[in-house]
Design a protein around this nucleic acid. Structure first.
Length: 107
DNA sequence: CATATGACGTCCT
DNA sequence: GAGGACGCCATAT
């Protein structure tokens, strides 16, 4: 079965590509900027379709609680944290950071 | 057309 | 502040 890439996915990816280095955005924020308010879950599905070798900064997308939403089992979770730390983002816990300090606010 | 699913958000305990 | 329950949205079956 092949995941179909829709126009929605393209818009979501485009928004993610605009998140500046060293900053993060919540799934809800990305959905809203993509013109799909309330469709935060759909953002996760779109990112899930990304190939492992993508250049998109998907690691800058976290949930509204300021924590990584990927399951800890796979290595993706650790990979996301590592990339963020390399951008200067400090974690207050294994998978949590301070949204107040790093949340991206366009404008 | 009805159900199930998921890298979520908000409210409540 | 940390979890759980329930709600939302677009897709897949």
């Amino acid at each position: 079965m092949v995941s179909q890439v829709t126009d929605i996915d393209q818009r979501i990816w485009q928004v993610v590509a605009h998140i500046p280095r060293g900053k993060v955005a919540t799934y809800g924020d990305v959905a809203r900027h993509a013109g799909l308010p309330g469709a935060a879950r759909r953002v996760g599905t779109a990112l899930r379709k990304l190939p492992g070798d993508t250049r998109l900064p998907w690691h800058r997308v976290i949930n509204a609680r300021g924590q990584i939403s990927l399951p800890g089992g796979n290595g993706a979770c650790h990979r996301q944290r590592k990339r963020l730390e390399e951008e200067g983002v400090r974690f207050t816990s294994d998978r949590q950071l301070s949204l107040a300090d790093y949340r991206w606010r366009p404008g």
